[in-house]
Amino acid sequence: MLSTQENAIIIEDLKKSFKNLEVLKGVDLTVRRGNILALLGPNGAGKTTIIRILSTLLHPDNGNVFVNGFDIKTQPQEVRRSIGLTGQFADVDEYLTGLENLLMMGKLYHLSRSVITRRTEELLKKFDLTEAARRPVKTYSGGMRRKLDLAASLIAYPPIVFLDEPTSSLDPRSRLNVWETIKKLLNDGVTVLLTTQHLEEADFLADTIAVINDGRIIAEDTPGRLKSRVGKERLELVIKRQDDFERAVTVITGNDLSHNSAEKTVSLAIENGVNEIQGVLNQLAESGIEVDTLTLRKPTLDDVFMHFTGLKPDEGRNEAA
């Protein structure tokens, strides 16, 4: 039995099926108090199902789940008092103003009038929404809306916050803005479980990344170590001629090698920068293989998946859950 003192969230052998579809196939996961854990995975991997179970919206078929030390099956009301929920399937009221939304949430958490006033002001200020506070939410930009949503989930000082794809469908600038807002939560000692499809997001925000695919956690590590397993950067080469491509596959050596014969591409992890790239190019030059284009890019979720499963994310099961 894991300690509920140290761990804000404990999930043991969690299983859940919808009709004949097994969405969670035995998930084990713990989040230490005050940490941010990112659940990284493609659509249909089971991320949202986990959040829905943790926030008492769904009953699990099997397994033990403790949130803030409370059993979700037998103490759902205590769990609800310990959590804040933001994201894909939680939203604010667009006809009310930002301020009215926060006041309403505060009242529904049965906070006292003075606490609501103080907390509302504090959150509006913290999330840069003070000026927009008296405008209806339907006039807000996507990023402002997400921030208000986040503020609404924090109104009752929950020790644990769930963020379900907090930046999905936001433009890059709003995304950065929301990220910085989430980072601020850490200073308050809040435990955060967030789901995302972007390695970059998990990397920026999380202390720990758990990679989920097809209802199972397939890797769990710090962002730094996880990335070093996939390679700091990836070199992608497009070979000019088809017969050269086949030779190139045998000639090139390196970590996390992958290739695609239809597109005549070879890609590999680069750990030591320029020297390593030079080495690869030399190997090819010696064998007389011509390279069409060369790109160096940051590893993506796809690369993480290739590394741990040998599959591209969309080659896995494609269920919407």
Binding site: S55, L57, D91
Partner: peptide, 13 residues
């Protein structure tokens, strides 16, 4: 559809 009811369901109300 908007998920407001889901959010309300996670409140102690």
């Amino acid at each position: 559809q908007r998920g407001i009811i889901d959010r309300l369901k996670t409140l102690p109300i």
